[in-house]
């Protein structure tokens, strides 16, 4: 067991890094993705703020960015990162790229879930004289809250997955720890304990997401 315990301080640091990368990315990407998703939903022709030009532009942008694998995405946006945060490596850089990548994925999940809200409910809100932005924030998001929470939970797991590649860019984290201290040194206890840690992290997130969604759906 000492193969693992000697690495305990590094392990703790790796957990802290992963939690930080995942937490910040989920929050920042979540807000940005929500905004993008609302734009996609609202500007769809015939909808609350129907605007074909904006819808097509955002739609194409999302479709272009989303299929790019994260490793390639983070490389591709290095000029942007240099310009905005001044670096292309480290935890900050990884978090920045991950936030952006997550935002595009979340935008689709938000759009899809808002589209499932009964148009009649939106019409009822319009009939009261409510403004479109007000309807988006006070009717559509609350009405779709349960599925939205489940969607965010799904993205949380995807972010944990992508964060494993942070090590490639000096971002640290559990993925980096498992490779550098584990597999590259044939230290299998480190690998398995790291895998177990990630499983626990994902399970905890999923459990929390399910619980919150159940509360939102009152089931």
């Amino acid at each position: 067991m000492h193969e693992f315990t000697t690495n305990l301080p590094v392990y703790r640091e790796a957990i802290r890094q992963t939690l930080s990368i995942v937490g910040v990315s989920l929050a920042a990407g979540g807000v940005l993705g929500l905004a993008l998703g609302l734009v996609l939903y609202a500007t769809r022709p015939g909808n609350l703020l129907g605007n074909r030009a904006v819808f097509l532009a955002v739609n194409v942008l999302v479709n272009v960015v989303r299929p790019v694998p994260f490793v390639i995405f983070i490389t591709a946006i290095q000029p942007l990162m240099l310009h905005t945060i001044g670096t292309t490596i480290g935890t900050g850089a990884v978090t920045f790229a991950l936030s952006l990548s997550a935002a595009f994925a979340i935008s689709r999940i938000v759009e899809q879930n808002l589209l499932t809200v009964d148009p009649g409910v939106v019409e009822a809100a319009r009939a009261t004289g409510a403004r479109p932005v007000g309807i988006l924030l006070t009717v559509l998001i609350p009405e779709a809250l349960g599925p939205l929470v489940l969607g965010y939970t799904f993205i949380f797991v995807a972010i944990v997955d992508m964060s494993a590649q942070a090590g490639l860019f000096g971002g640290g984290g559990l993925g980096d720890f498992a490779i550098t201290y584990g597999s590259q040194r044939y230290n299998w206890p480190v690998v398995y304990i790291t895998v177990a840690t990630i499983v626990v992290l994902v399970q905890a997130g999923q459990f929390l997401g399910n619980w919150l969604a159940r509360r939102a759906l009152r089931r």
Binding site: G120, E123, R126, A127, G129, P142, E143
Partner: peptide, 16 residues
Amino acid sequence: RRDIGMVFQQFNLFRS
């Protein structure tokens, strides 16, 4: 619209 009320066949109540 604020001076006009509307009721619907499917009620269209806010479930949330």
